[in-house]
Design a protein around this nucleic acid. Structure first.
Length: 510
RNA sequence: GGCGAUUUAGUGUAGAGGCCUAGCACGCCGCCCUCUCACGGCGGAAACUCGGGUUCGAAUCCCGAAUUCGCUACCA
């Protein structure tokens, strides 16, 4: 019973991969890698109604961006293919027949309208042992009639015949034994003749068995149907190789109640998708972590800690560290509210740990977006700029807000700072400052600073006011790194030019 | 409604009978640093859902209630 570990991530291509799905994929991946096992990506496209073009590519691209590697799948191939359920019709048909022949499933002709009527007539209606004998199915109709309807092409479904009154046990690796009585289960539809496709339950069990999956790691929403799946394994006679089940806690809305949904992202201003998604039907655009400036390593780290912890206080972990530390024992059982604020902090921390030159490279496209040609600047200059302002950014894009004045001179001056610092005597002091600066040959921060400070002190000027007025002319507002680090990078000529411009353009408030 | 799961500060979590006057992180507040804003350093407010047990002793074990979440489709 010690089979090589094989896990699968099995999304439906019904839209962009949700961040909760990403976490499920991540946990599967971590588990697989830790056990030197195999990670399978299976596309569960058994709902022809909800298929969305582009969704499958999106899944592949998102997982690749995050570094969640796939060993077997539609693109990767493998010995257990095809890995797309719509290409496995023959396999499902065969297995449906097997169940039918064994009397463990039956054919039902009830139309959606008839089922709807039954539900309306009795609010607690369930297609099960208590009702199936009053419905239109192969259990209640003569065999010839059933055959005739099928031959005529009447749409039908195959339902799983569930024996009532049995306690079905599911052993969940993070929740322990979960027992559900089979009486509360309905005769689930396993196959629909209309599109010649199975439903999730049948396809899932057949594929997991055939693909030799050893651990089913999925979201908690599947826990209630796990007993049904156990029953299906039994019906096929696969009980001895049935995989272990792991139901992960759900990702919940940060505020109110319920599962995290795509709406929450727009509502609260954070992405719920790994990559930006353009809905082909509505044309709506949903923001993605990648486009919002998150680093994939930070997203992975953040997600890993939502529902799992390493058992100690470690928070910053690389993918390799996550792989070695991951354990089902340290998975939590309760749903986790999606605390995106902490996601920002992870990104901030990863950005701080990145070398300045790497960050400078990432800054280049941002500069281009703002009409600045980064090639006009040396890498050394860009790296220095980045090193000065990186402490105050959460995203690569923030670099522009923090460093734009290194590339363009101020056109406007922040009113609040002008009011506070641009006192009537300032233009005069700035004229003097220009003279002082002109006399400095070595414009480095270390050399220029003592000269200017000395001038301020010698003349008994107000340090805060003069320095901030100086800053106002150069930066446009009173924020930013050490003043002389800025002027060192800007150079003497540019610094003096900006002071002159400030003297002419800053209009005192009141 | 039924069934299942769940429950430590605002959030994510540590804790597996005495090490808990409950730890860490994010966020929040304050102080320091300081030409500004940040960063950083230091400090602070803030939690064991409730009620019964068991025990010398319970956040940790048992029972009950409540809470929240999920499922209850010819969707996954």
């Amino acid at each position: 019973m010690n089979r090589p570990v094989r896990v699968r991530f099995a999304p439906s291509p019904t839209g962009p991969l949700h961040i909760g799905g990403v976490r499920t994929a991540l946990y599967n991946y971590l588990f697989a890698r830790q056990h030197n096992g195999t990670m399978i990506l299976r596309i569960e496209d058994t709902d022809s109604q909800r298929f969305v073009p582009g969704a499958e590519d999106y899944i592949n691209e998102a997982l690749a961006w995050l570094g969640i590697g796939i060993d077997e799948g539609v693109r990767e191939g493998g010995k257990f293919g095809p890995y797309k359920q719509s290409e496995r019709r023959d396999i499902y048909r065969k297995h449906v027949k097997q169940l039918l022949d064994a009397g463990k499933a039956y054919i039902a002709f009830d139309t959606p309208a008839e089922l709807e009527a039954a539900r309306n007539a009795s609010p607690n209606f369930q297609y099960d042992a208590s009702t199936r004998m009053s419905m239109r199915n192969s259990l209640t109709m003569p065999a010839q009639e059933v055959k005739r309807l099928i031959d005529e092409g009447t749409p039908y479904v195959v339902r799983f015949l569930i024996e009532p009154g049995r306690d079905v046990e599911v052993n969940d690796l993070i929740r322990g034994k979960v027992v559900i009585n089979s009486s509360i289960l309905d005769d689930k539809v396993l196959y629909k003749s209309a599109d010649d496709l199975p439903t999730y339950h049948l396809a899932n069990i057949v594929d997991d068995h055939l693909m030799e999956v050893t651990h089913v790691i999925r979201g908690e929403e599947w826990l209630p149907s796990a007993p049904l799946h156990v029953l299906l394994y039994e019906a096929f006679g696969w009980r001895d190789t049935m995989p272990d089940f792991v139901h992960l806690p759900l990702l919940l809305k940060p505020d109110g109640k319920g599962k995290l949904s795509k709406r929450d992202g727009d509502r609260l201003g954070f992405p719920v998708f790994p990559l930006e998604w353009h809905d082909p039907k509505s044309g709506d655009i949903s923001s993605g972590y990648r486009e919002s400036g998150y680093l994939p390593e930070a997203v992975v780290n953040f997600l890993a800690l939502l529902g799992w912890n390493p058992g100690d206080d470690t928070e910053i972990m690389s993918m390799d560290e996550l792989i070695s530390k991951f354990s089902l024992e340290h998975c939590s059982r309760a749903g986790a509210k999606f605390a995106f604020e902490k996601g920002k902090w992870f990104n901030h921390t990863y950005l701080q740990n990145m070398d300045d030159s790497t960050l400078a490279e990432k800054f280049k496209p941002v500069l281009r977006e703002h009409g600045i040609d980064p090639d006009k600047y040396s890498d050394e200059f860009l790296t220095k700029v980045v090193s000065l302002v990186k402490g105050r950014i959460n995203f690569v894009n923030d670099l522009w807000d923090q460093a734009s004045y290194f590339f363009i001179e101020p056109e406007e001056y922040e009113a609040k700072s002008v009011k506070k610092r641009w006192t009537p005597d300032m233009p005069g002091h700035m004229e003097e400052l220009i003279k002082v600066l002109e006399s400095i040959d070595d414009f480095s921060s270390a050399a220029a600073e003592p000269v200017v400070i000395g001038w301020i002190e010698k003349n008994n000027l107000h340090m805060g006011n003069v320095m901030n007025a100086f800053r106002l002319t150069v930066v446009g507002k009173c924020v930013g790194p050490h003043m002389f680090d800025i002027t060192e990078l800007l150079g003497k000529d540019e610094t003096i030019r900006r002071i002159k411009k400030g003297i002419n353009n800053i209009v005192p408030v009141e």
